Simulated scan of single mutants.
Amino acid sequence: MALELMKLLVTGATTTEVDPTDSRLFYVTTTPTAAGGTLTIDAASFLQDDGTLLTTLPSLATNNSYYNVYINAVLQMDGISTYTPGATGVGSLAIAVPAGGSGIPTGTPIVLEIMSFSPTSTTVITT
């Protein structure tokens, strides 16, 4: 009888579900910010979707979240803002207004959109 290689037959399947969480935060400027200046918005100055004041800007999980900044309903470039998570006095959104352009006038709406993802995976191994 000839020799045979004996091996296990194993199959596996992984199912991953991603649950996105979208938060929109709102602020209306109370003073103008000139070109070349920085507008810093404290965490407690943002209104949530339900109209209540925010208390803490959430931490952004690496590779599972991001934020967008809209000024007067226009999506802004990535490098113009700095997001710092935390409660009032610590958490903030800083917007660096480029020099040589126009500033941000009083009464301008600013929207901070935060997207976070919570992936869960289930693996089934069949032998």
Score class of each variant (00 low, 15 high):
T56W: 03
S81A: 13
T127P: 15
K7I: 03
M115A: 02
A96P: 01
L57A: 02
G37Y: 05
L8H: 13
L112C: 01
L57N: 01
I95C: 03
S45H: 05
P105F: 09
L75N: 11
D22M: 08
T33N: 06
A35D: 12
P20K: 05
T88R: 06
E113T: 00
T123D: 06
G86C: 04
T38I: 09
T55R: 08
D49E: 08
L39G: 03
T30Q: 15
T108A: 12
T84W: 07
A73H: 12
Y70N: 05
V90R: 03
G89F: 11
M1Q: 10
F26H: 07
M1K: 12
T15D: 03
S118P: 05
V111M: 14
A44K: 10
Y83N: 05
T126Q: 15
S121K: 07
A43G: 04
L93S: 02
E113R: 00
T108Q: 10
A43W: 06
T62I: 10
F46R: 02
M1W: 08
D78L: 11
A35K: 13
T127F: 13
D22H: 08
I125K: 08
S65Y: 00
S65M: 02
S59M: 11
T108W: 12
T30K: 14
A2E: 13
T55K: 11
L93N: 02
Q48I: 01
T108V: 06
L57H: 01
V10G: 08
A87D: 09
Y70P: 06
E113M: 01
T29L: 06
D42L: 03
P85L: 03
G12L: 04
A43V: 00
P109A: 04
